[in-house]
Design a protein around this nucleic acid. Structure first.
Lengths: 230, 230
DNA sequence: ATTGCCGCTTGACATTTATCAAGCGGCTGG
DNA sequence: CCAGCCGCTTGATAAATGTCAAGCGGCAAT
């Protein structure tokens, strides 16, 4: 693993400020691996052997039940995933697949627990990170439980618009079928939801979306600081 | 606060094995309060001042959005709630109300963070607890995203049956309208879902439910160890 | 350039879930 | 004992969402 790659990982809030020797202990037995697109990294019932750090690419966390499959969340670099599972020393709870060619650092879950025991500052950062992850899932849960499909799409567009620089438009970062699954609907229903939003100034051109009437869209979406991420 | 009450709190995995002086530091400024039923304890946007421990009674965590309200989870004694919020030092994220007369120990969130910094064993236990809470929400999220209303009800009945001693029956621990909200449906729809389950041996008499054909019910429910709690 | 695949869209239709309205029946306060 | 409230149920209907089938159009391999 190159120094430049180590620096990328170190730049994460979770690992920043960690003593160099602790960082090295953690990386012992870790490896940075490159995966092609559409590869399943692990399944929900597998035992959690590694904390994953997505260095480059894109990863989808999903789950299966009753012959259905649903996207739970999308991971974008640079970010860790399955932290809670690595700490609880049980199953992953979610399956993961790459959506693009991805570089992933795999840190033995055991190392995380080991370093946490001897570095109370790292333990503190882990707790904060975990608490934030927890709130992320709570947000997602509220989103799907309290909003209709059209409302979820409208709010998604507003969040992406903000993240991409408030330019009254955005580029979808994933295929529409993946977006549909993430928003908890079928691809057909997503197409229709986009049509429903047309009167609210939403113009679709492939993956490029223009938002020409933000205030009307917000009236429909009723964005909430307690549901929508920053 | 009486010694017997302290013992109840201490019996929780989170606090067990904690040094007595650390336990006392944590309880400084804490108070055990009795609330009548139907009282709102806090709202989702409020700043998290206290970690709550439900000693006796029943509490509902819920959320509002778009003029809708939904039950997120039910707390039964003895258990802590809003741990993640207390650790993250932000808003509660969820609102809470009592469903019955309840006794609640309120521990200043600050105390938790303080003791965690000086008791690495407690920090460790907090992490495990938080990771379990995290998986609880992930389960709830999968449940609502991958199952229909009837399936959610069927699985709920199977879990309650197991928890209440595998006697081919159970008593609903909450009003049906609350159960409906927790399962993400209207009370009308819950009534109809119960009717749908009649051919699967589910007999309803008020709050008392008999399950006369577990194997058929399981075929419909398709219970999953990765969704349904233990 | 052509072919075939694949993601997306659209239409028709089915299913699921919610809404509105009415009524039943137990419980409780007077 | 009775009235009224409230939780629950049922029926009728509407809205939301999913399913199935067909077709369009870009893109990549040949």
């Amino acid at each position: 693993m190159r120094e430049s790659e180590k620096e990328i990982v170190r730049s994460l809030p979770l690992f920043s400020g960690m003593a160099p020797d602790h960082f090295e202990i953690m990386l012992k037995g870790s490896f940075l691996q490159k995966f092609p697109a559409t590869v399943v990294l692990f399944s929900e019932q597998d035992h959690t052997d590694f904390l994953h750090v997505l260095v480059d690419g894109q990863v989808e966390l999903f789950a299966n039940a009753n012959n259905r499959e649903g996207t739970m969340t999308l991971i974008k670099p640079v970010a860790t995933f399955v932290l809670a599972s690595a700490l609880a020393d049980g199953a992953y709870q979610l399956s993961a697949r790459t959506l693009q060619t991805s570089q992933i650092l795999m840190i033995p879950a055991e190392n995380i627990r080991e370093v946490m025991a001897l570095d109370s500052d790292f333990a503190q950062k882990t707790i904060v990170e975990l608490a934030e992850c927890y709130h992320g899932v709570v947000r997602a849960y509220k989103n799907i439980k309290l909003r209709t499909a059209v409302e979820r799409l409208a709010n998604y567009l507003l969040v992406q618009n903000r993240r991409q620089g408030d330019n009254d438009g955005l580029v979808l970062p994933v295929e529409k079928r993946t977006l549909a699954s993430m928003l908890g609907m079928t691809p057909e229903n997503l197409s229709r939801a986009f049509n429903t939003l047309k009167p609210y100034g939403v113009v679709i051109d492939g993956a490029e979306i223009s938002l020409n009437n933000l205030s009307d869209l917000e009236t429909l979406a009723k964005p909430s600081a307690h549901i929508d991420a920053n």
